[in-house]
Design a protein around this nucleic acid. Structure first.
Ligand SMILES: [Mn+2]
Ligand SMILES: [Mn+2]
Ligand SMILES: [Zn+2]
Ligand SMILES: [Zn+2]
Lengths: 154, 154
DNA sequence: CTGTAAATGAAAACGTTTTTCAACTGCGAG
DNA sequence: CTCGCAGTTGAAAAACGTTTTCATTTACAG
């Protein structure tokens, strides 16, 4: 069942959030678009009708919608990376410990079956993928931290 | 065969790049660390010995090393995202067209086998993953653009 | 040693995201 | 319907992270 601006509005209210004109405008912009939009792009779109809306509001609304799982986030390849020495020669992927930041490598990645399937389903000609696992490394599982005590990189 | 600062230095030279003290310092910092480091983190590390090195140089060197595949890039969850309306209710992933930016959904994702395997191999307790496919959508395959003419979002 | 193209650092420009705070308003209680 | 207030907003500034510019320095081939 497809999400509409109206439905999302209802979800917001049911969760105790207010349904403001600004939020409605943002909902319309997002539901109307078949693209993925950056916060700025959303702002520009919304602005056409709602000239005075602040970019801050866009950020706040996006955050809210993402939290509630009403919008999806795409990693648009921008600049939010950290780096580490390459260890395996081969194509591989990473596991990142959300406790301490440790990164482990994973080489036996076989997405080709999935890629084929997806390719057939969608008609896309796939040429690369981004795959990362998140979790707790062995030692962080033991530590069993108090909560919210991530120390790792960044 | 593990990459060392020395070996990477050799690669650089063999590719016609100069081996400067700054680059060496960065290589040492990166090879010494078992963590993934942000550009700023690398800068801070390197600075201890090489007080005058500029953050610009760190950025330039990282770019170089990444291009040559000597370091790996981890998507550290920062802020480089675009957003779109959630379409499938279920857990799913995205295919992004590098031609026009179109995003397609892919629901039949089954990484659980891989997750189990990786989990066994590394001892990680995996609780989430990031998976995205990149490629050309059907219509962009036809268009066969001149080159570098991405128009999509962002 | 020298000449030259490559590399560097300081500073400024940039684009994005967050913080702050005073003003405003959606909406439920009365 | 009105009132009151917690929730929401916008302007502005601060905080970031990254890139550009440009004059100066330097690695290294010849
Ligand atoms: Mn999604
Ligand atoms: Mn890697
Ligand atoms: Zn850990
Ligand atoms: Zn396309």
């Amino acid at each position: 069942m497809k999400l509409t601006a109206r439905k999302i509005g209802a979800v917001l209210k049911s969760r105790g959030y207010r349904l403001t004109p600004q939020r409605n405008a943002i909902l319309s912009a997002v539901t109307a678009s078949h693209d993925h939009l950056t916060p700025t792009a959303i702002h520009e779109k919304v602005r056409r009708e709602h000239k005075n809306i602040g970019l801050v509001t866009v950020y706040r609304t996006i955050e809210l919608l993402a939290e509630l799982g009403l919008i999806c986030e795409v990693h648009s390849g921008g600049n939010c990376h950290s780096y580490l020495l390459r260890r395996p020669d081969q194509h591989h992927h990473h596991l990142i410990c959300s406790g301490c930041g440790t990164v482990a490598d994973f080489t036996s990645c076989d997405l080709s079956d999935m890629e084929q399937k997806v390719s057939r389903q969608t008609g896309f000609d796939i040429n690369s993928h981004l795959l990362e696992f998140m979790g707790l490394c062995r030692s962080c599982q033991k530590d069993d931290r108090p909560e919210g005590s991530v120390s790792g990189a960044k």
